[in-house]
Design a protein around this nucleic acid. Structure first.
Lengths: 241, 241
DNA sequence: CGTGAGCTTGATAAATATCAACTAGCGTGG
DNA sequence: CCACGCTAGTTGATATTTATCAAGCTCACG
């Protein structure tokens, strides 16, 4: 069901992409940027609920989110499942498979989404000619590791309320970096998905949203949320004990 | 206080190191292995309790554990601390800093430990001539990511008992791969450190050990543990609900 | 041998999950 | 276009898990 969209002369390229300041091209010179334009030969449309790749699939490419939202999730042999990340435009998914050259998670669209296909072969070829690209890749893998470590601290040492506050602030900041409002947005994920990401049950997430609203920190109606008191929310998790 | 140990003609090298099958050289040809011997020009002795590097330190090298045990731990601005890994001989630490070129965690010795210093400069030089080394590096970063994701599942969806069982089995398997007994070993970390790693309090860890012992799954005296019923321990966390 | 950090164990409190009932809103098909 | 049905979400009562507080123990080490 995935729709492939071939790139034509007219298609937008890396050098003109609005996500340039968040995606692979970060910090590249104009000259390097031009070279980047050959990198993406294909895009894929992933409809809401569809899966871009699955755990165990051979890794042939990594993907840059162009628009939409993806979740990545892992499932253990004994059926436990956990969401490991929500991915906004400009973010790269699939890096976790580079170790074994096969995907280490599933990637599923939370809304209609389009990704740029970065074939590993092309990537290697281009990297040889473009050291900044190679460096960029290490950076992105490093970021993935530090993100996961931050989540380990969250899951290992924060209480439910702190986790959810941290989640809201993180989402807010990432949306803001993409030109959206930092205080009012639509969460593309269900209470259950938020719970899975944060190691909580959906009822707990729901109760906390209600509690935050009652405390005047947020306004919430379904997935539409408005952060009324950013500082107050931050206090929920940044206090020293 | 860290002791540097220069490498001489007589020192052991990668090509003859007993950890070869677990460390950087995994899967390399004899020819490539010989080239590897120039990579490590220095070793460092880290005494129990000493710190090899700290968060924020500029990243000049990564380190292969030669003998001993390290823990890596992160601390957030608000003072929260979490152990992100225990590292046995043959494992590489420092990879989490490759993103920003500065260390993203502290590394502290749990017992007297020696590490091989892999300078990033030398690594880059050698990689150009040794594609298998470059590939090996991606593999190791990938492994780091999948390890962290496994821990996310552990912290996000397992109960205390399941976490500790998984911890014991994981330690057992890694020790076994290093030629130690898989059923009887000394844990180099305190109850509190185990708790930090697993997102539990030290009392909980202690109680669980006692409970496991009472159930006949293990024998335990301080840090010396004997896994009596491996299958039983595995059942604690691999059952389907 | 004394001493203190690390560990154990008990009693109690707090946090979160579970179970259950109910509600809102979305999408679909008549 | 509206009504129906279904999924997602809310809220309450209760159970379970884990943390917290407190006291005592033990073993390794000087």
């Amino acid at each position: 069901m995935l729709t492939s969209i071939p790139i034509t002369e007219m298609s937008p390229r890396c050098s003109t992409c609005a996500m340039g300041q968040l995606c692979l091209p970060v910090g590249m010179s104009q000259q390097d940027l031009t070279k980047m334009d050959t990198l993406v030969q294909e895009r894929i449309r992933v409809h809401k609920g569809e899966t871009l790749y699955r755990m165990g699939d051979p890794l042939t490419a990594v993907y840059a989110v162009r628009f939409g939202t993806l979740k990545t999730h892992v499932t253990t042999e004994d059926g436990r499942s956990q969401i490991t990340g929500f991915h906004l435009p400009g973010e790269i998914v699939g890096l976790d498979g580079l170790g074994e050259m096969q995907h280490a998670s599933d990637a599923t669209a939370l809304e209609d989404t389009e990704v740029c296909v970065v074939r590993l072969g092309d990537l290697q070829t281009l990297s040889a000619d473009l050291p900044s690209l190679q460096h960029q890749f290490l950076r992105l893998m490093g970021k993935e590791i530090t993100h996961d470590q931050m989540m380990l601290v969250t899951l290992g040492s924060m209480r439910a309320e702190e986790r959810l506050a941290a989640f809201l602030i993180n989402l807010s900041e990432r949306l803001s970096a993409r030109g959206y409002s930092s205080t009012e947005f639509v969460m593309r994920m269900s209470r259950e998905e938020i719970g899975s990401y944060l190691g909580l049950k959906l009822e707990t997430v729901s109760r906390l949203f209600s509690r935050f609203a009652e405390a005047g920190l947020i306004q919430i109606r379904q997935r539409h949320v408005k952060l009324v008191d950013l500082a107050g929310i931050k206090q929920l998790y940044s206090r020293s004990c």
